[in-house]
């Protein structure tokens, strides 16, 4: 599915990611964890095309065998053709647009093709109307999955925090990704919301989408991940199933060394 090999990212004199290699298998929930500043978000930004890596390669293979070199693709093509979607640590919604509009923007490329690239639909030709109806159906599906159906016509910026997080996931899913990258999806959620999130993520996996997530909340990570990669100072220090990682002395040392109680793997 996704294979990262010897990935490096340098900012000036700082080696944010240093020779990282790992694999994420299809249909798995892969978690990337590590103390603050371990380089997790940088890895994400490399995978989703926001940074161009200094070295190494990131390859994504679709189920039909097509391969994409993510490290060399322009940012927007990663979403459009390689079908990798992402959410952001600081939620980035289109705040002044409604929830439904957010979900339709996510289906831009499909809808745009149906408009005859903008020209025909202006004069009312083409098969746009049907395409839009289909897009709204898909939006409704994800609204339902995220429990936002009743808020469909509210501006995204007016939603409560937890709902905004869910909307961001719904929006990413509307792009029909083969892999969804989540940057701290549980940050700021209360235990109940966090549990709902777990269910949502499992449901997404159930629909055939692989997940890659960065998370601090060990409750989420240990319960739903199939595979965990642990980073510290830009390097991989452990890699395996939740049980294996939990028992790895290197992981314990890294976390205890940081002295942050809340981040000790539970």
């Amino acid at each position: 599915m996704l294979s990262v090999s010897d990935l490096s990212m340098r900012f000036g004199g700082l080696m944010a990611v240093d020779g990282l290699s790992f694999e994420a298998k299809p249909g798995d929930i892969t978690a990337v964890i590590g103390p603050n500043g371990a380089g997790k978000t940088t890895v994400f930004n490399c995978i989703t095309g926001f940074y161009r890596p200094t070295g190494g390669s990131i390859t994504l293979q679709h189920a039909d065998g097509r391969r994409f070199s993510l490290h060399a693709m322009p940012g927007h093509r990663i979403g459009a053709t390689a079908k990798v979607a992402r959410t952001f640590q600081n939620i980035r919604l289109f705040a002044g647009m409604t929830v439904l509009e957010n979900l339709l923007v996510a289906q831009h490329n499909t809808l745009m093709a149906a408009t005859g690239f903008g020209v025909l639909a202006v004069v009312g030709l083409g098969r746009y109307r049907a395409a839009e109806a289909k897009a709204i159906e898909k939006a409704k599906h994800w609204l339902d999955a995220t429990g936002l159906t009743s808020r469909g016509d509210d501006p995204a910026g007016a939603l409560p925090y937890g709902a905004q997080r869910r909307l961001e996931i719904a929006r990413a899913m509307c792009t029909d990704p083969v892999m969804l990258c989540l940057d701290e999806p549980a940050a700021g959620l209360n235990p109940r919301e966090s549990e709902e999130l777990n269910q949502l993520l499992l449901r997404i996996r159930g629909e055939g989408c692989s997940l890659l997530l960065i998370e601090h909340d060990m409750g989420v990570v240990m319960r739903i991940s199939d595979h965990i990669v642990v980073l510290d100072h830009g390097k991989k220090i452990s890699d395996g199933t939740p049980a294996e990682v939990r028992a790895d002395p290197a992981v314990i040392a890294a976390y205890l060394g940081e002295g942050e109680d809340d981040e000790v793997p539970a």
Binding site: G75, R77, A80, R86, G96, Q107, H108, N109, M112, G118
Partner: peptide, 26 residues
């Protein structure tokens, strides 16, 4: 017309958040 079509919606999305647009493959 354009405002109700994907192109116009993408313009407005761009105004709201360019980074998010890029992540959605626009």
């Amino acid at each position: 017309r354009l405002r109700r079509l994907p192109l116009g919606r993408a313009w407005e999305a761009l105004r709201e958040d360019e980074v998010a647009c890029r992540s959605l493959g626009i």
